[in-house]
Design a protein around this nucleic acid. Sequence first.
DNA 1: CGCATTTGACCGGCGC
DNA 2: GCGCCGGTCAAATGCG
Length: 196
Amino acid sequence: MDHQHHHQGMHFLGSLVQTPALSSISPNNEILASSGYRLNIGDACSSRENGFPGLKAQIKGPTAQVKDIFESRTTTVAAAANEVKSGTGSKRKGDQKKTRKPRFAFQTRSQVDILDDGYRWRKYGQKGVKNNKFPRSYYRCTHPGCNVKKQVQRLSVDEGIVVTTYEGMHIHPTEKNNDNFEQILNQMHIYPPLLM
DNA sequence: CGCATTTGACCGGCGC
DNA sequence: GCGCCGGTCAAATGCG
């Protein structure tokens, strides 16, 4: 737990993904949408603190708007996430360190906001975003002990694009089969059409 | 009944 | 100090 990272900023994986139009895939679990768009991020990018499997997207400079949205966050975020509840409550103890978790974001061209990445998420908040007509949703991985969070935001500047940001590393494997044909298919759709 | 989502309150940081 | 902002909590509600 000491091998810290030197990058405190956020990595931006800007890939424009054109997902195939499959029909609803897994209705019950995953926050999957009915239109059948899905993105697989299931196994492991291995690299660092985040597991980003099939995401081979290249790292590229974010577009003006996107960058704006996330970069400002980086610093403030950590504080809120850690210390928060120590105020009056007696429940949580903000004992955790002040880790500044790196975040990874990527954008997708999709009709649905929630992409099926193979993990189970519980929504814990939603807020309006300045200059944006779409709200941003906050999710937390439901696996016990796993602190991974993610937020989803659709850009109003181009409502066909959804930005998903991951924060933290999963401490458990994906809950779904990874050899699923469809998933592989989807992974393949990840890199091709790049934004710039 | 056991989950997940909804939604307004609340919190810490920051700029003025 | 106050108000805004991004983020989170938690009670109520919804749903299978």
